[in-house]
Every structure is written in structure tokens, then in C-alpha cells.
């Protein structure tokens, strides 16, 4: 069993045909299902938020069996995630994909819990603090992708649970969570 870091790769990763997009529908469905799960698990484990299709990505090739995914296959697997709301293309060219191992509403809930745990209700904090502050250390929010975080915060704002306002410096925004 190979490991990338502490991540345990599933057995199918060592079976060569899983690196070729299967032409038969049923077989392909299973193949896509397995890859979807693997991509989400892997990204969650390594806190990866963006996969670039044209860059090296350890999951998309297996040197042990000398196989790697073609561009088309990567796009099929990621598109399947996109259609389930577990990923989003960052631009039209489908070259970069945002991976949502927690869906945006789940992130929003996670943030609310985080706010409650740290008694941040009614106080002002910044986006950057949520990403790298002391409180977030050891939580899933540490190092969260800015795009993902902003989307979750906007959702909270829509629900009336937070207010986002521009700070004095352009690159950071302030947030006030309502109790």
C-alpha cells in the first residue's frame, strides 16, 4: 500500500485501467465514483482547495504502475464533482478547479460553530484572522482558501448572521458576527 504523506491510497489506484477513461457506461460510472471520492478525500487530507489541470498533481499519476490521467479524464472526474456541488471551475477554460470537500453551506455552519466556540459573537474580526489567527489554529479553517471563505461568509451575510465590511486596507475585510 502506497502512501502520500499519511494518506492511504485506495487499491484501485494501483489498477492500471482506472487511469483510462472507460468507454462502457456502467464501468465508467463506477470509475468516476471512485475517483470523485478519492479526489475529495485527498484534498481534504492535504487541505488542497485548488487543482490546476495543467500542473503536476500527485494524485493524477501513479509512477508505481507508470500510468497517469489524460486531460480529458481529469476534466470528466472534476466535472462530475462540479455537477454535485463539490467543486467549481474557476474560469471558463476549465483549467483550475476549486474543490469543496465541505460544501459552502457546510463551511458556513463550521464557521458559526467556530464563532460560538471562541466567543466571537458581536465582535469584529477580519478574514485574514479567521484564516491564520490563533483561534483557528488546529481547526479546518486554518489556511482555508480565501475564495471559499468569502463564499461562506457571504452566505452567512445573506442569512443575516454576519456583516462584511471593507476595512481601511484594501486587502482585508472585516466581519461582525451577530449573536
Amino acid at each position: 500500500m502506497q502512501k502520500v504523506g499519511e494518506f492511504k491510497l485506495p487499491h484501485f489506484f494501483n489498477y492500471p485501467p482506472y487511469f483510462t477513461l472507460q468507454p462502457v457506461r456502467d464501468t465508467r460510472e463506477k470509475q468516476v465514483q471512485l475517483w470523485k471520492e478519492l479526489i475529495l478525500d485527498y484534498c481534504k487530507h492535504h487541505k488542497i482547495f485548488v487543482i490546476g489541470l495543467e500542473e503536476e498533481f500527485p494524485l493524477f499519476s501513479n509512477p508505481t504502475i507508470d500510468r497517469s490521467l489524460r486531460h480529458e479524464a481529469k476534466e470528466v472526474f472534476l466535472s462530475a464533482l462540479v455537477s454535485e456541488g463539490r467543486a467549481e471551475w474557476l474560469e471558463k477554460g476549465h483549467k483550475k478547479c476549486l474543490i469543496l470537500w465541505h460544501r459552502i453551506p457546510d463551511w458556513a455552519d463550521y464557521i458559526l460553530q467556530f464563532v460560538k466556540d471562541n466567543g466571537l459573537e458581536d465582535s469584529v474580526t477580519t478574514v485574514e484572522e479567521i484564516r491564520s489567527g490563533v483561534e483557528s489554529r488546529g481547526t479546518e479553517l486554518a489556511g482555508i482558501d480565501r475564495v471559499v471563505l468569502m463564499r461562506a461568509l457571504k452566505l452567512l451575510e445573506q442569512k443575516g448572521k454576519a456583516t462584511i465590511f471593507k476595512g481601511t486596507s484594501t486587502d482585508d475585510e472585516g466581519i461582525k458576527f451577530s449573536a
Partner: peptide, 28 residues
């Protein structure tokens, strides 16, 4: 299952029902 990823360019037809590795996949 078809596999067109080998360097020699020949298509390989894999049979999960006979390959020993499939036991592990199935266990998963």
C-alpha cells in the same frame, strides 16, 4: 476494463475477475 496508458501504445484489456489485485479493490 480497457487500459491505453502503457508506453508501448498497445491497448490492454484487464479482467478484474481474474486479477489478484481486484480482491483488494473489492475488499475496499
Amino acid at each position: 476494463m480497457i487500459d491505453d496508458g502503457h508506453r508501448d501504445g498497445k491497448h490492454r484489456y484487464w479482467f478484474p475477475c481474474v486479477a489478484s489485485i481486484s480482491a483488494a479493490i473489492e475488499a475496499d
